[in-house]
Amino acid sequence: MNELEIKNVCFSYTGEEYVINNINLSLGEGELVSILGVSGCGKSTLFNVVSGLRKPQKGKIILDGEDITGKSGKISYMLQKDLLLPYRTIEDNVALPLILSGTKKKKARLAVQDGMKKFGLDGTQKKYPCELSGGMRQRAALLRTYMFSGKAALLDEPFSALDTLTKSEMHSWYLGVMDEIKLSTLFITHDIDEAILLSDRICLMTGKPATLSEEIVINEPRPRSRDFTLTPEFLAYKKQILSKL
């Protein structure tokens, strides 16, 4: 069954010209699908629509069989800025989605401990975001997103603000954790290497108004390792994508 379905979505800020036109995409359980496109092509607009912050003029968003078009609070996202609240400890930041939905603070804190361990954040519970490195903060932000919706998440260039070394470290970590948490993920990026390394499928977003012009399936079994980026198959995928962008 499809976890998340985007059906014929069109959206315009002004009501005249569409920014994104007729977007169709479905995301299966535990799948990671990337949307790859140049900056400013409408990727983030699509995210705002899927997360319910904006209502599309046409089309539907369906999560687990439920129509969530224009409804926020159903599917959460994560940006390149970690957006952790500086005045809450890491565990309280991560537990925030639970607290928002009415869980008592103590219970919420207990509920996130398992995730903290899985995400390699053990020991940072009582620390404040400013005491953590950029990579660790992104992990915490991802865990917060995961705590909110354990099924599907939208990641909008989550690693693009990190330096190259931290970024590649985060990729290795993410490849390891993604199979464990089985999160269906819609992943926005403008980094071709990142997209090939992490995705099951890559959708290219091109044109004005933007459409999903091409879908490329990455046939590489998971769990993958970083060495995948050094193989000829990887380069073949890259060539294929570059020729179509």
């Binding site: 997360s51 319910g52 912050l53 926020s72 609070g73 159903k74 599917i75 959460s76 996202y77 940006l79 800025k81 957006l83 609240l85 809450r88 925030l96 989605p97 607290i99 928002l100 939905s101 909110f148």
Partner: peptide
């Protein structure tokens, strides 16, 4: 962006104010 994120997590006006 923080306020939008809170909204995406289902926070109401009062919760956004408080947290």
């Amino acid at each position: 962006d923080t306020i939008n994120l809170m909204r995406s997590m289902g926070a109401g006006k009062i919760q956004i104010f408080r947290y």
